[in-house]
Design a protein around this nucleic acid. Structure first.
Lengths: 131, 131
DNA sequence: TCAATATATTCTTTAAACAGAATATATCAA
DNA sequence: TTGATATATTCTGTTTAAAGAATATATTGA
């Protein structure tokens, strides 16, 4: 497996199995390699190699725990991708929506939080949300 | 150039020049091929081939205008990437209120303590692998 | 110590994907 | 029509990245 010292984040995310691994780690939190292998039903060397790419890219971190290596999602590179896509936000997001979202959020805050907001865009709008 | 019928969005974004093209189109709006070529100083066939990938992925749209092909950013696939990254928002978002509660509820610890706790990982430790 | 477990690494082979050069197609302008 | 312009496509060679098999390394437990 060819391996540049620090693979590009986008390149790392281009591989479907690597995205699956990230999604799994995102849902389940920290996991050892064997748990990932058994969940995704892929050969262990395959998983280990992809974990290696993810680690070198900074997308995951490792912690030694006995003879296990416990992997976990690392935020920074994912956030970088997130921020990159925000550059194009104006192509799908109208300013009108943003105002409306703020109004909805304010109304919700007054009446208490509902259980599961499906529109997770609300948080994003909170972060950069001015007019 | 190998070309699957509908290239994966992440795969399309893995190529640096394609991201440059998208960024340029994002800033300048609609552009003809020659304008892109002259701005990015890359061979025209190279640019056209990458535009082809972007178009097949749905990342850009084309409009015939005389003998020009005018390209423009298309929102949907970029938004899909944006939404995918939001899956990991809680890893960088400090508003962990409800999310933390969910993580703790799912935590049925049956393994030892993490030996080397990294940063904020301590508060949401959970079982790694069953075995 | 030895064996088992957990994971990483090193081969080899195959398949994409890229660049570059050459060429093809379509449209305008004279 | 003819020639110029704008862009796409095809071909070739090279690089890269993936899978799969085999093996290596580290750690625990008996």
């Amino acid at each position: 497996m060819a391996m540049p010292a620090y693979p590009d984040v986008f390149l790392a995310l281009a591989e479907p199995l690597r995205r699956e691994i990230l999604e799994l780690l995102g849902r389940r939190g920290r996991m050892g390699v064997t748990a990932i292998v058994e969940t995704l039903r892929r050969p262990q060397p395959t998983v280990s190699k992809h974990l290696g790419v993810l680690r070198r890219t900074g997308l995951v971190s490792v912690a030694k725990l006995g003879r296990q290596r416990v992997y976990a999602v690392e935020a920074a590179p994912l956030r970088a991708v997130h921020d990159w896509t925000l550059m194009f936000e104006r192509f799908w997001d109208h300013k009108l929506d943003r105002i409306q979202a703020r109004a909805e959020r304010a109304a919700r805050a007054d009446s208490g939080e509902p259980a599961a907001p499906t529109r997770r865009d609300i948080k994003r709008r909170e972060r950069d949300g001015r007019s």
